[in-house]
Design a protein around this nucleic acid. Sequence first.
DNA 1: GCAAGGTC
Length: 938
Amino acid sequence: MAGNRQIRALNVAEKPSVAKAVSGILSRNQARVREGRSRYNKIFEFDYTIRGQPIHMLFTSVTGHLMELEFDDRYRKWHSCDPSELYQAPVRKTVPQDKLDIKRTLQQEARSCQWLILWLDCDREGENIAYEVIEVCTEANRNMNTWRARFSALIDRDIHEAVQNLDRPNQSFSEAVDARQEIDLRIGASFTRFQTMLLKDAFHFDFATEDRNLILSYGPCQFPTLGFIVERYWEIQAHEPEEFWTINCSHNSEEGTANFSWMRGHMFDYTCAVTIYEMCVEEPTATVTMVRQQEKLKYPPYPLSTIELEKRASRYFRLSSEHTMKVAEELYQSGFISYPRTETDSFSARTDLRAIAQEQQAHPVWGPYAQRLMDPEADLWRNPGNGGHDDKAHPPIHPTKFSAGESGWSQDHHKVYELVVRHFLACVSQPAVSAETTVEIDIAGELFSACGRVILAKNYLDVYRFDTWGGSFIPTYMLGQQFAPTTLTLDSGVTRPPPLLSEADLLSCMDKAGIGTDATMHDHIKKLLDRFYATKDANTRFSPTNLGESLVMGYDDMGYELWKPYLRSKMEDDMKAVSLGTKRKADILASCLQEMKACFLDARLNKVKLFEAMGIFFDRTGAEEQQTIGGVVRRCGLCQQADMVLRRRQDGKFMVGCLGYPQCRKVVWLPGSISEAAVTSNTCNVCSPGPVFLIQFKFRRLEIPPNYSVDHLGCIGGCDDTLRQLTEICGTGPRNPPGTSASVRGQAPTTTSGRQAPTTTSGRQAPTTTSGRNPASNVQRGVCSHCRQTGHSSNGCPSQVSTSGRARSRATNHTNGGSSVPCNSCGEPCELRTANTANNRGRQFYSCQSQECRFFVWEDTINDGGVGQNASHTNARGSNATSGRRGGRGRGRRGGGGGGRGNDTTFVSATGEPVSGRRCFSCGDPSHFANACPNRGM
DNA sequence: GCAAGGTC
């Protein structure tokens, strides 16, 4: 290239750390560094040769997306338009204020460069950011030759290969992201504005927040995440406990005790279970039918991805995913761990894994393990497994710098660093090895089995203290050996609902359904907590709040699956199609937005479902409701910020009101004799400022003088004499309003204030309302909606059952107010509920709401003379089969009952108290056996 | 004041 001026290339990475790393690799750490306009995004300079051509390289970075998608100013304010307009409102991509410094740096450097080399992450978002950088740079320099460097890891070979094989950016990838952004913005903003404005002032919410700041957001990721929580919660609520029976056998020998469990597992038919049990009791000799010994391996985990890091930190340390990512980010920033946002769970073959492990040998706690790992004689090293995911941009999370703990670290920094290091050492270790012994026995033709495990080599478990693999002892048995069981019991239990979703469960659900990305999942979870949609308990388990549940319930009742993950999954499929070039961005945008707009309009028509669902949990404020009919009539002349729209109130009154209500109270009341009104596309050529759209009115013939027409195309701008006259004649109220007349909110130029049609029902208003005094105030405020007394809110009305009680009424198991029994574990009162299973329909029970306590008791066993209360308060594995008083249950097949034969077997009751074989295992009475127990209706 | 996606 002699004679030519040397080419200058502007290189841009997605983040400062990549700019630094790549510059370091390409310049062999010889790059000069200088400041840019943005504090974080330095500029590295060095010379490099690409395919024989000497290039002067400038290397800087952005910090993720450079631009944001937003609505045009005209649509930015919440009350500026009808939310349904947000499906077509113009949008634009702009560089936000806090990114302007980066933009200036890029433009300044671009002016002196001929090439632009884009080193953004090799995923769809990275491609989209590449186009944002191109847009900004070409604004300053139209003639740049634009290249894309594609690399899969920040290691020398990949980086040199990437720069020697420069490619062009992929527009389809970027367009897929454009489509995603636009759909997310339009759907999110429209539904958020709709449900916030609809519900925020309509209900008294029972959680502490500044009402003004309450946002009831909707988003295509946050709602399905909430959906997972609600769905599990409903599953628990709807669970109908079912009683089951199982036979357990134990055997004491000189070596110790073996516990055999019934290979049939749980049996739900009592008659069948008791029959088999009695057969066993009558022929209780056990014969060993199988002894099997096997070597089992427990493999270490795959290399650590972001989601696994979050799940494991939640499980092992109970850290929230959001906090884990914050701590991980700090460890990454200070160089101790690799980039923490990665989907990759397999190491590239080129990574020097041994060097990473070697560095940890100095650690006081896990150092000795790392030393063993490096020792070829210990034979502990193993190449890590491949989890099958690779984002092509980042390696799995691993330690990048040794530390025995830094002075500035919090407990959580220590924990997360330790997890990353131990996880890395574990995944390059041999699996744990055990010898497992399974013994099967036969008693009267029934099979039972017991298992024992001896750990032969802990291997990776030595360093991965978070994983356990319990050993269990089993005495030696020989095939064909016979013995008499020490205990043989028929135990009862009840099925339990699944537990509430833990944070790790929730992340798994999201991952599976493709909700969010590794970098954003924790944000969606946190958003649910911030929005008062869900709560998290001390065990990191999530429950929906009343607000979260009622929103999901409302949409569910409409028949919409807006809270399910399908919408997002479909979008993900569409995006993939766009990025592969099989669908066009414009097509999927048009079809998706059309579909969503129809859904939005339908949801708005069915908003009563949302009101009903919210009404289950919250009291109405009584704030007036209006139905917007038709579109915009004119721009509001008072606030000059929002449109005025045609509306019809619940009492039938027509008006044209400002969308800025309640901030702006501009309103034009219309005559009470209107039966129909619709905004047309015609505009008034008199009134200004325009446009003022004309409204097509239909009046009720009998309510207007004969010289007026029932059809009238009118203007509310002040020029329309007919409208003014009819307002004076008819007033602004309807003759037969569907509800009580309500207060008037402001005066309009065309109304004749105070003039009411003779049959209006204003006199029917409750004397406590504040009509006319403060038009916008809630007429019910200060008065309980249940008992009409003051001094307490409706929420605290003594005449009402608790809100939580009403909340439960949706569940199949209805809560019956009144009596309660304390949980025998946590002591909390348990509510009386009613079962609805085929076998127990109508039967009442108490169970603890806590997931941890597994307390359950049938109500009819508590005061049962035959069974003491204590004995009845058994947990799921408790024994005595006390139920079955109802007809059809527990009818023993055989009459009369021989007990156990004379042998050494002792029968044990639920409470652990030994009983002789001739006692009834049901009620403990020695005078009869179970199949003759009077409690069983024999 | 709204989404979700980058990243500091």
